[in-house]
Simulated assay, not measured.
Amino acid sequence: MQKKKILVVLTNTTQFQVKPEATGLWLGEATEFVSDMQQAGFAVDYVSPQGGYVPLDPRSLKYADAQAMAMYQDPEFQRRALTASLAPDQVHAEDYTAIYYTGGHGVMFDFPDSQALQDISRTIYRQGGYLTSVCHGIAGLLNLQDDNGQYIIAGKRITGFTTTEEILSSKRRMVPFLNEHVAKDHGAIFQKVRAFKSYAVTDGRVITGQNPWSPHAVANALLDAIGN
Rank of each mutant, 00 (worst) to 15 (best):
N220G: 15
E180L: 02
Q15T: 10
F42I: 03
T13Y: 03
Q150A: 12
V107M: 12
V134E: 05
P58H: 09
V54D: 11
E32Y: 07
Q67Y: 06
S133T: 09
K171S: 12
I158V: 15
Y151F: 14
D147S: 09
R79M: 13
Y130N: 00
G140Y: 04
T163Q: 07
K197C: 10
K5V: 00
A225C: 09
H105P: 13
N211M: 06
A30W: 07
I152A: 03
L25Q: 05
Y125P: 07
Q145E: 12
K62Y: 07
D36C: 09
W213Y: 13
V193R: 14
A64Y: 01
F111W: 01
R194C: 01
K171P: 00
G103Y: 13
L178E: 04
S214V: 07
T11I: 05
G204R: 02
D89P: 01
G209K: 14
T159K: 10
V201T: 14
R172F: 15
A217C: 12
G160N: 06
A43L: 13
S133V: 03
T132A: 15
G106Y: 04
A217I: 11
A30C: 14
A195D: 14
D203F: 09
A70Y: 02
A81V: 08
S114M: 04
D203M: 06
Q39V: 06
G106C: 03
P20K: 11
P176H: 10
E32M: 05
D146F: 02
Q17D: 11
E165L: 04
